[in-house]
Design a protein around this nucleic acid. Structure first.
Lengths: 245, 245
DNA sequence: CGTAAAATTGATCTGTCTCAACGTGGGTGG
DNA sequence: CCACCCACGTTGAGACAGATCAATTTTACG
């Protein structure tokens, strides 16, 4: 069963999994449910009965303000999951919905407990959760302190690295079935301004993003203008930063 | 030893701790180190050898951009801690420093493991970590989609609830040794604009914030203008929201 | 084809930033 | 004990990034 391959690949980036770990993950992902675009997995206030894994497609976590404005909190690509410990919370305090048809495996608390009995799997999921938090923190920096141009560039750099880790990029080109309005809800820009920014990136021959496909033409230059440092997405020990932050 | 009282009080909000759990927490917090204002606990790139608890005072997590701009990612009040699983990461990818003299207990990975052997303590720390993430997500919404006035109001509402949980407020009044510039780095506003916003809040008799002390005079009204909903800080099951997010 | 959603472009508006000055309080060294 | 000093708070004026409003074009899809 190939259902769990992206999930396994992602977790393998965080700890070395044994054959028995892999078998259990495959079993956990054996019977996914198919969700259509815009379909909700959970909404704020719902009882929190399951963790979940996105096996393919694209989902997102978000919050709505009373006036209808939306902040997307995270993208969930193939192999991404909710926090395994999510069922410790009585209720969701954010919503989850699918942005592009996705197969999603729901994980009961008992199943999560069984997965976590393997030290390797537990370690991988723990580290995965920490990286997910690091991504949220980086988004906070992005929205708080970067210009529109940097925000969009930084987001694309991040997605490139995350998708590369599960083999969904080829030469910094990848499917990204996102609307410009959805991208705006992510980096806190109007759809109009996202469009202008993407046009600028295209004009500079840094990135094209058309037909649900993104292509980074000059990765080094894009990272430079974005101030992108992939450390927060990786675990390999690397030399300390110089800038003291 | 009273060192750990705020920590115990905070964790007790997330699970019922037994006498042995409390004893172990007190032991873990028995030999704190004192940090002065602006002193750093960790910086980006440092090896990640410890988790920690702030026993009193005020610390924060932050990131610096190359141009020197700073985004504060979280406040750590008395009883707040880093993610217990932080040592799973090889390195810090954000920095931690003290904003007001604080006693901090460092927790070795072995000690954390020992703490987590108690189901109650493990449950409390797990739920605490989830609430901490919920706070970060709410900050992302704050910075991304709220006006200056709403941002500052929302932040003050949140701090009020968090400090109340550890008994550090009296009638919605509490010590908050924060500079207006630091508050600006938190909600992504210039110090000047934070000042104007605080003046407006004072003029409206909603909040005064002077001499390192904040006083919320009309909590209901403040929450209303901020769009503040304390669900994300609490665990009690409550009726589902109506707004569908 | 036809229709609706998404992308693109232009014009105008505005919240917040930046720069610049001045006030103020608490700490420190002479 | 006073005078200076420095960090922090306060206020004003002008600038600008990005929002909003309003078409128009392109694309996706039944």
């Amino acid at each position: 069963m190939r259902n769990a391959s992206a999930w396994i690949e992602r977790l393998s980036g965080f700890a070395t999994l044994g054959a028995d770990d892999v078998a259990l993950l495959e079993q956990a992902a054996a019977t996914p449910r198919l969700y259509g675009s815009q379909e909700g997995l959970a909404k704020s206030g719902d009882a929190c009965e399951f963790a979940f894994v996105v096996l393919d497609g694209l989902a997102c976590e978000f919050k709505l303000l009373p006036d209808g404005r939306r902040q997307i909190l995270a993208y969930l690509f193939a192999g991404d999951m909710s926090d395994a410990r999510q069922p410790l919370m009585p209720r969701w305090n954010h919503a989850v919905c699918v942005l592009w048809p996705a197969r999603v495996a729901l994980l009961s608390p008992e199943l999560v407990r069984r997965l976590e009995q393997s030290p390797a799997t537990a370690r991988a999921m723990g580290r995965y959760a920490l990286v997910k938090q690091a991504i949220t923190r980086e988004w906070l920096v992005n929205v708080g302190h970067r210009t529109a141009f940097e925000r969009v560039s930084h987001l694309l750099c991040e997605i490139d690295v995350r998708l590369e880790a599960v083999g969904l990029t080829r030469d910094h080109t990848f499917d990204l079935p996102l609307t410009q309005a959805e991208m705006g809800d992510t980096v806190a820009l109007s759809a109009v301004h996202v469009n202008r920014t993407l046009m600028e990136l295209r004009r500079l021959k840094l990135v094209t993003f058309q037909n649900r496909q993104a292509s980074i033409h000059d990765c080094a230059a894009l990272r430079a203008v974005a101030g992108f440092d992939p450390h927060y997405l990786r675990l390999e020990p690397e030399p300390a930063h110089i800038d003291g932050n």
